[in-house]
């Protein structure tokens, strides 16, 4: 039983990490209908920037969590500026272009950021110093660290904040209007360019948060870390219904649970025929199944004609 609870916790933590990244994906998608393939790379830049700052401060007598906070505070503006630039350079000129054109520039940006990351931070893996408390707490025979609790809570808080932002503020209303129809929104006095920039900047700030959390949790950062993470987060966002904040959270947590329980129990379920090597197959299989029955994800709107 304690093993099962531990697997649930594992899934929840992993899922919250996916959700943190997926929220950024889904925001951009919600407003522009664009898969921002470079989002994972922004996460990477955020993680490595904060790492550099943290390493600078490692000698000082500041307490660990404060150092991490300063690192995060340094990474957020870098990522925001990066997100702003990416949108201006690679996506804005293509708003009227065929749908796949920005997808290709996104892939291009992703490659460029990876190489820039490698040039700045080198090819080696970096160990993220253990500045946050990692002594495990025991719940029903299972273990969870404070940092992991923080990740789960943070993901939920950020989701709630974003939902509030989108549904109750002026900017949020402008965002929804832009998502609905940018032309009409423009006619109604919404500065569409500005709203899209704001969306990118917020999404990139989230990427910085996600990057720091991911590297702190696994104590590792590397210029190649963004790609797989971005891919998983993208999967999570689609599973939940891309464009929907609650969906990103739900999809992330679900994907985390599927992976964790899949790796843990698939071997027993299939009598040892399939093992944890089929973890991803299991995850994608669930995704396909969900989409066959709910073609726009678990919480996605019924957008029949949006291709």
């Amino acid at each position: 039983m304690d093993i099962f609870i531990q697997q649930i916790i594992n899934g929840l933590v992993l899922g919250s990490i996916y959700a943190l990244v997926a929220l950024g994906y889904t925001m951009v998608y919600g407003i522009m209908g664009l898969i921002n393939f470079a989002h994972g790379e922004v996460v990477m830049i955020g993680a490595l920037t904060s790492l550099s700052i943290i390493k600078l401060l490692a000698g000082t007598s500041l307490p660990g969590p404060v150092v991490v906070l300063i690192g995060l505070a340094g990474a957020i503006p870098v990522c925001m500026a990066l997100g702003f630039t990416i949108e201006r350079v690679a996506y804005r000129p293509l708003r009227a272009a065929p749908r796949l054109a920005p997808l290709i520039t996104a892939i291009g940006v992703s490659i460029v950021l990876q190489q820039v990351g490698m040039l700045i931070w080198g090819r080696n893996y970096h160990a993220f110093p253990g500045l946050l408390p990692t002594t495990p707490r025991h719940i029903l025979g299972a273990q969870i660290t404070d940092l992991q609790v923080l990740i789960v809570v943070l993901a939920a808080l950020i989701m709630a904040a974003l939902i509030l932002l989108v549904n109750t503020t002026r900017i949020g209303r402008a965002m929804r209007a832009t998502a609905e129809n940018p032309d009409i929104a423009g006619l109604m006095g919404v500065d569409v360019n500005q709203i899209i920039s704001i969306t990118f900047v917020i999404g990139s700030a989230l990427a910085a948060v996600a990057g720091v959390m991911v590297s702190a949790n696994y104590s590792i950062a590397h210029y190649y870390m963004g790609f797989i993470l971005g891919l998983k987060a993208f999967t999570a966002a689609v599973l939940g219904g891309i464009g929907n904040m609650g969906g990103a959270m739900l999809g992330g947590v679900l994907l985390g649970l599927i992976e964790s329980l899949g790796a843990g129990y698939i071997g027993d379920l299939t009598g040892g025929f399939l093992g944890s090597n089929y973890q991803d197959v299991f995850a994608f299989f669930v995704l396909i199944l969900v989409l066959v029955f709910r073609p726009s994800g678990l919480m996605g709107e019924k957008l029949a004609e949006r291709a």
Binding site: G262, G264, G267
Partner: peptide
């Protein structure tokens, strides 16, 4: 099993 790009091993280690 895991893969050469993974960072999370909680599930298999728990098992």
């Amino acid at each position: 099993f895991t893969n050469d790009k993974a960072t999370d091993f909680a599930a298999i280690l728990t098992k």
